[in-house]
Simulated assay, not measured.
Amino acid sequence: MATKLDNKTPLGKLILKNLYLKGKNQEWLAEQIDVNPNHISVLCSKIKCPRIDTLMKISKTLDIEMSELYQAVSQTIESKQ
């Protein structure tokens, strides 16, 4: 049986897990880092490499180490190949 995270990228899974743990949603994150909510959705579900400033804002807002985000981005890119 598929879960809601099965179709998400490694970066998306990391973001969504941390949002869940904080009791927040993608719209809240988008507002906090000043991006369109669609942008967060795309980062979570499609293979897309975010800009470094976006990663830094996500890191600060969700209290995720940059190294974790880099690793998730790397895994996301590798899964494309």
Rank of each mutant, 00 (worst) to 15 (best):
S59P: 01
I40D: 01
I58C: 03
L55N: 00
L55I: 04
Q32E: 11
D63K: 15
I47C: 06
E27M: 12
S59I: 12
I52C: 07
V35Q: 13
W28S: 02
V35P: 02
I40G: 01
D63H: 12
D63N: 15
I52Q: 09
I64W: 01
K48V: 08
K46W: 05
E27A: 15
D34I: 06
I52L: 12
V42G: 03
Q32C: 08
D53W: 02
H39I: 06
K57Y: 02
D34G: 07
I47M: 07
L69C: 07
E31W: 07
Y70E: 08
I47L: 04
I52D: 09
I40C: 07
S45Y: 13
I58V: 14
H39K: 14
E31K: 14
P50S: 08
V42R: 12
Q32T: 10
S67M: 08
T54M: 07
E65V: 02
L69P: 01
E68F: 03
S67H: 05
S59K: 09
E68I: 04
L62E: 00
I58W: 00
S67Y: 08
N36E: 13
D53C: 08
L69D: 06
R51M: 12
D34A: 05
I47Q: 09
D34K: 09
I47E: 07
E65A: 11
V35M: 13
S59V: 07
